[in-house]
Design a protein around this nucleic acid. Structure first.
Length: 297
DNA sequence: GACGCGTGGTA
DNA sequence: TTACCAAGCGT
């Protein structure tokens, strides 16, 4: 995204906030009594995983571990097991580590300070801003892929945002932020929701969009994407697939698993060994004596 | 900045 | 069917 002449983002505030008031989804982590831990758990799970797949795992998780201290008291392997098939299971490990840090350093309360949040394992720029904004009502630019896409279209006039987040994206989001703190917090969640429900990546529902009459991309005739090709992520045959299979076996087992059971899930030995070593190096798997393995204790 | 990291739904 | 996409993070 370029950072020059911007349509005044302030003209978008009222229509987007009004749209959100009537169209926001009811999600458990948005309930008034949800709390910061609920927001934090949802944000970890939603990193690269769609809402529909997060919902059941989220409910089980919060029922079992309603506070950070509840999770911190368990071995990390239990977090990995409860992560189920959400994908990227290192997030489960990081959420567990973050819960321990919250207990050790913040009295068991999710911190409300942006810098303190950023220091937690698995919390990056986006997640720190999201927790501070959604859970504590603070004024932060909350820049995820939805927001980058909405701003790319509405303000910059391009069909898609840059392939990876840029400093310009961040600056644009900061510039567009309403001054008032509470309004800024609603704007953050509203722009994200607009990107998730209307201003979608593939087939945007422009007819339903509250800012279509002010959208730079629509006003330019909705030109197609003309940037460099996006990096297609292959999966079949990758180490990621092998890791996924190995971990699925370990999640399903109540206790230690003989190596033979792991050997059965992938034919090529070299890749299998590499994947298993990687899981051990990542702390997702504990090696035991006598060629056995289990989730980390 | 590019890359590795899971999984499944959708067009 | 293949390819893209989904509330990123850490190295």
């Amino acid at each position: 995204m370029s950072d020059s002449p911007l349509p005044h983002a302030s003209a978008l505030h009222e229509p987007v906030l009004h749209w959100y008031a009537g169209n926001a989804r009811s999600l458990p982590w948005r309930e008034p009594d949800a709390g910061a831990w609920a927001v934090m758990v949802s944000e970890f799970m939603l990193q690269q995983t769609p809402v529909a797949r997060v919902l059941p795992a989220y409910r089980v998780w919060m029922e079992r571990w309603p506070k950070p201290a509840d999770l911190a008291a368990e071995p990390p392997g239990e977090a990995v097991r409860a992560w189920d098939r959400l994908g990227y299971p290192r997030r489960a490990l990081r959420l567990h580590a973050a819960a321990k840090a919250i207990v050790d350093q913040h009295g068991g309360v999710v911190p409300d300070d942006h810098a303190a949040l950023l220091a937690l394992p698995g919390v990056g720029t986006y997640t720190a801003a999201a927790i501070a904004s959604f859970a504590y009502g603070q004024r932060h630019a909350v820049v995820d892929t939805n927001v980058r896409r909405v701003f790319a279209r509405a303000l910059t006039g391009s069909a898609q945002p840059s392939i990876s987040p840029t400093a310009a994206d961040q600056r644009l989001a900061v510039t567009a932020l309403p001054e008032d703190e509470r309004t800024a917090a609603r704007w953050a969640v509203a722009t994200m929701e607009l990107g998730a429900l209307v201003c979608t990546a593939r087939s945007p529902r422009c007819a339903e969009c509250p800012i279509r009459s002010r959208c730079a991309w629509v006003l330019a005739g909705s030109p197609p994407y003309d940037g460099p090709p996006r990096k297609g992520q292959t999966y079949e045959g990758t180490d990621r697939q092998v890791r996924g299979r190995l971990l699925a076996v370990l999640r399903a087992a109540a206790g230690p698993v003989p190596k033979a059971d792991l050997d059965a899930c992938w034919p090529e030995q070299a890749q299998r060994e590499r994947a298993l070593d990687g899981l051990v190096a990542d702390g997702l798997v504990d090696p035991l004596p006598r060629q056995r393995y289990q989730l980390p204790g």
